[in-house]
Design a protein around this nucleic acid. Sequence first.
DNA 1: AAAACGGGGTT
DNA 2: AACCCAGTTTT
Length: 323
Amino acid sequence: MLQQTTVATVTPRFAEFISRFPTLRSLAEADEQVVLKSWEGLGYYSRARNLHRAAKILTEQFGDDIPDDPAVWADLPGVGRYILGAVLSQAFDRRLPVVEANTRRVLARLGANRTELTTPEMQKWLWQTATDMLPRQHIGDFNQAMMELGATVCTVREPDCPNCPLRASCQSFLNGLQNEIPVIAGKTVTEQVLEACAVIRWKNRVFLRQRGDTGRWAKMWEFPTREYARPADPVAVASDLTGELKMPPGETGSVLMTLRYSVTRFRIQMTCVEITLSENPADAVYDDNGRWVSLEELSAYPVRSSQRTLAEALIRPLQRELF
DNA sequence: AAAACGGGGTT
DNA sequence: AACCCAGTTTT
């Protein structure tokens, strides 16, 4: 119930649920519709279905002898790494960590780690750090305490650092960084960029060109600062950008790229322009979503943040170079 | 690595 | 209106 649901919301609902299904077997033997009915208003109904399925699996395979084997639990529907650690550490004192919203904040602050929370490397760091920190005994209490610390002291806003039991070893408190950490990513924004990318075919060669105004051939993922980078954001450099060309070379399609700035993530969907070059400039055509246009018409096509048209900036230099 | 899944509370 | 919540699964 506590997955993405506040303690305040869950508390009364949990009591009702346990009263309705006091044992694992009673839950396993209940009709799914009855279980779902008792879940009404909590949302994420797949949690209820998974819980019910998991109860049936456990009861069928182990009867009333609930296993403490992490491998068994990990295969249960709805059991991810958090539930695995939470259940087994508290029910059986198994030495497994728990990482959730509160512990993420506590650990990031403790180590003054500025890596954005949702990145894979940060997730890895968080789980590893939580694992390394585990005591020998009373694992469940420790996990619970870490979450409680995040909920009551190491809060999102205005953490009570002076009264924190970990203040002496907290790298954020020691450096006055508790309000900068953790780093949370902004919402991903998607922007259509029509003229930014071109697939150029000439004889047996295919050129991928990011922009027309840099004056040189560049790989698709090498491009200068874009005007839609917000002023507060640092300049996007090649290392900040990871991209994947989703179309076969030589065909028209779109490119999805993710720009990672310090906080906000940009997702850029570029509609690529396919251009077939001819030695006669008047013959050059491009295909924009199935529409074929001559180079004459193309010359009016603007290159964003540049006074030059696509034809002037990209195609003419290409023709000069190739012919 | 996103996006989907959801209702309720906070800013 | 936007964001967040004791996450997991599917795309």
